[in-house]
Design a protein around this nucleic acid. Structure first.
Lengths: 107, 107
DNA sequence: ACTCGATGTTCGGTGTATCGAACGAAAATG
DNA sequence: CATTTTCGTTCGATACACCGAACATCGAGT
């Protein structure tokens, strides 16, 4: 019982001190369903629900569904990197993108 | 009939010259379901399906499900880049970071 | 014009996502 | 410590996501 997705939802929900009811209300869900997402075996929510829930919990949808996605802590540096990256020219961005693509293919 | 999601899937699928069958095969779906996603009224696929389909079509999940986000524009590509980046090992991340730092100093 | 293979479309069925409402357990309040 | 309120849990019912297999269509080849 329990799933990575469920654990993340519960962790973040309690962190924000929300009840099942309030989270349900903010996401057009029933609290019973939120509970099932958190506790039942292998939940397969719709993309719509995931997005609503991510929004209510103030995390990104990828963080919820991507099985392994690091904790906000480690991703601080990543975000800094991303901000720098965004300021590059398109040409430079493409260079970086190709660089990453290239070396992430071998293995 | 038709939905933004469906239009995007069909557009990208034909762009890649895939048949319903091949896309279905690559996403553990039936071709009838892919067809329904493309043509029927208001499809609500699971997050899992959206992700498999995005992967097969080589676009980001956000591009598919974010209602607006016309062409894979720059910001979407940037996020795709960031997602890939996040999956790297810490060592590889640092290499990329140094690379960026270095070359954005001369200018 | 007639196969034939590939692609697209339709449809009935099955599982499960999702709901409402009731139930139980704490915890707050007096 | 009795009562009220809040939170979590369970369960039966319903809608619809998703499927398999049949049917339709169209193009390429003969």
């Amino acid at each position: 019982m329990a799933s990575p997705l469920g654990d993340k939802i519960r962790a973040r929900r309690t962190e924000l001190k929300m009840s099942l009811d309030t989270l349900a209300a903010q996401t057009d869900s029933s609290k019973s369903y939120i509970w099932e997402l958190e506790n039942r075996d292998n939940p397969k929510p719709s993309a719509e629900k995931i997005n609503r829930i991510a929004e209510a919990l103030k995390v990104t949808p990828e963080y919820l569904w991507d099985a392994e996605a690091d904790i906000p802590d480690e991703s601080v540096k990543d975000r800094a990197f991303f901000r720098k990256y965004q300021k590059l020219s398109s040409a430079d961005k493409k260079r970086l993108q190709r660089m990453l693509d290239a070396w992430d293919e071998d293995e």
